[in-house]
């Protein structure tokens, strides 16, 4: 028994030593994981998110659309009045030259080549018949003639304003300036929100319909009755198609109510209270016609 115990104890000691050597020295350092910020949004907010296309190239940061980097200008005279656009002096936007300096070649250029084509008319029997109608041929011949040169005044050569003469841009064009160059449009809208039909617009529509609606009278539980009508609009506020009842008529009174609602919808157009910018939202609307909702409530 003693030998067995010794052997066992020494074997255990050896295994422990081996474990010490093999497992010990490497300290397992677990770097703290980075926390991930999470936003809780409602499903409506999610559906109205204006995320860009999934496969669109990723823009680093949204930047304003800019074509030119603005130079930092220190106003020469801080007290001077601020002018929006710098005066851009170009060749084509110059003040008309004084009349006495008109160059001599100008009339030569302005000289028009004779555009009158000679129309040959053969004495013909058919020609007499055709005489009443205007002949297309002379017009066709006139077209390939050189056009009138532009009425623009030619730039006058001035050695002091060569830079202005070389500038061929339109005088109105002013580059948008900003911090950084950015030629791509940003995703999303300015506010990041989808357009919504305001409750006031819906209320205005409902009020308009209420004005036109003559509900049939005389049913037992007419207050509870609700008639949903699908209305399709055109962009100008008129109806795109005849209004459709969303539910089938259960009895004659309900049929009368549906008919009256459809009549009211047709009579009231155009519905100008709906803004054309949000046309996508009111292209199709289901309006519930009910005595309770429209008159009672």
């Amino acid at each position: 028994m003693k030998t067995g115990l010794t052997i066992s104890a020494s074997a255990h000691a050896a295994v422990l030593l081996w474990a010490l050597v093999s497992f010990a020295p490497k300290a397992l350092n677990a770097p703290p994981t980075e926390s991930m910020p999470v936003d809780l949004i409602s499903s409506t907010e999610f559906s109205q998110l204006r995320a860009g296309a999934r496969n669109a190239p990723k823009a680093e940061t949204p930047k304003p659309l800019v074509e030119k980097i603005a130079e930092k200008k220190t106003p020469a005279d801080p007290a001077a009045k601020v002018v929006d656009k710098p005066e851009l002096v170009t060749a084509s936007a110059q003040t008309p030259p004084p009349p006495e300096k008109v160059p001599e070649r100008k009339p030569a250029e302005n000289k028009e080549p004779k555009a009158e084509p000679k129309v040959e008319q053969k004495p013909d029997a058919i020609a007499d018949v055709l005489k009443k109608e205007p002949k297309p041929e002379p017009k066709k011949e006139a077209k390939p003639q050189p056009k009138k040169p532009d009425p623009k005044p030619q730039p006058k050569f001035d050695a002091n304003r060569i830079a202005a003469l070389l500038d061929k841009r339109d005088p109105q064009r002013v580059a948008a300036a900003g911090d950084t160059l950015n030629h791509t449009l940003a995703f999303g809208t300015a506010t990041g929100d989808s357009p919504k039909l305001a409750q006031s617009e819906l209320d205005a529509l409902r009020a308009r319909l209420r004005e036109c609606w003559n509900p049939p009278a005389g049913a037992t539980n007419a207050e509870k009755l609700k008639v949903p009508i699908l209305i399709r609009f055109k962009q100008d506020g008129t109806l795109a198609s005849p209004p459709q009842p969303e539910s089938a008529a259960a009895d004659s009174f309900m049929q009368a109510m549906i008919d009256s609602a459809v009549r009211a919808t047709i009579r009231c157009q155009p519905y100008t209270m709906l803004s054309p910018a949000k046309y996508d939202l009111w292209k199709e609307i289901v309006v519930d016609f009910s005595l309770e909702g429209m008159f009672g409530g």
Partner: peptide, 17 residues
Amino acid sequence: LLIASIWVWAIAIDKTV
């Protein structure tokens, strides 16, 4: 448990012999 393990192996060696 370590002592038990040592004892178990001691018994095992002893019994095998």
